[in-house]
Amino acid sequence: MTLSAPIAPQKDRLLALAKSRYRSDRNLSGEWNEALGAILSHRSVRDYLPHALPEHMIELAIAAAQSAPSSSNLQAWSVIVVEDKHIKDRLNSVAGNQRQIAQAPLVLVWLADLARPRDIAETRGGTADGLDYVESFLLGVVDAALAAQNAVVALESLGFGTCYIGAIRNDPETVARELCLPDGVFPVFGLTVGYPDPAKPADVKPRLGQETIVHRNRYNPGAHRAALDAYNKALGTFQAEQGMPRIDWTEQVGNRIGTVAALKGRHALKRVIRKLGFALK
């Protein structure tokens, strides 16, 4: 017979996790388990020790990724394990020379992969016209994201650190050439993985309060406005603790979406995606 954890420790863990995630008096109630602990404790790690990951850990992370849901079971994603320093350095040039890429022993590049289903269909003498539509591209991106997040939860539950790298989309053509991607394969994002540096611990970044993102039955425009000052304050406390530059989240949002230049080359993604073999009808 399996004994459940005592009620009091469960409650204490949920209270601590809620305080870290929201920096408010929000209380989480209900059952606690190790899976919830791993998910709610997520933090982006940008400082790593120079130790390679054991191969069996990579295989375990991929098994976790393959355990994610997949639309119509097409499994329209792939991943490239990048451990070669020279390739990693060139990918880092695309991403703006980020320290987490330089330090991490490996980078996983997650791919929306429509080349494999196309090859399967054509090898069988059929057609693959359905892959030429936006829906199929979106399917591959969603599948890759679901798989990657499963891998993140698995890796973090084992004590490894991770950080998503969206900046490889600054120049997907260069990434595609570097990784020898065929037509119909798109690099969605990278993911650094490694042993966190205990001398530079990362903390849980606070998120918007649930009242700003949860809508009941119908969308409520403007529901977020009342909570923005409190969130700016919570995030500012986190930034100070982590030695990060102080910037209000509302200012950060404005800076990120305010100009085309802020997209850092990603304004051309539609053209590039088509050039990489996606018709996007």
Results as ranks from 00 to 15, higher is better:
164 Y>P: 01
270 K>L: 13
139 L>V: 08
250 T>L: 05
150 N>E: 03
174 T>Q: 09
177 R>C: 04
223 A>L: 11
145 A>G: 12
215 H>C: 11
192 T>S: 05
197 D>N: 07
273 I>Q: 00
207 R>Y: 00
243 G>T: 09
262 A>H: 11
237 T>R: 14
274 R>F: 07
200 K>Q: 08
151 A>C: 10
254 G>Q: 13
254 G>W: 08
172 P>F: 00
180 C>Q: 13
226 A>P: 01
203 D>R: 15
268 A>M: 11
131 L>Y: 02
142 V>P: 05
168 I>K: 06
272 V>K: 06
166 G>Y: 12
183 D>P: 13
259 T>Q: 13
139 L>A: 03
247 I>H: 12
152 V>F: 02
134 V>F: 15
230 A>D: 12
160 F>H: 13
171 D>Q: 03
199 A>M: 10
197 D>P: 04
219 Y>W: 09
216 R>Q: 08
166 G>S: 14
240 A>Y: 03
266 R>S: 04
217 N>F: 12
172 P>V: 11
207 R>S: 01
204 V>T: 12
222 G>L: 03
193 V>C: 07
232 N>S: 03
163 C>H: 09
139 L>W: 14
199 A>H: 08
197 D>A: 07
145 A>E: 01
224 H>K: 01
140 G>T: 04
127 T>G: 15
241 E>C: 10
207 R>D: 09
263 L>H: 11
205 K>D: 01
260 V>R: 12
165 I>E: 02
133 Y>G: 10
212 T>V: 12
183 D>T: 05
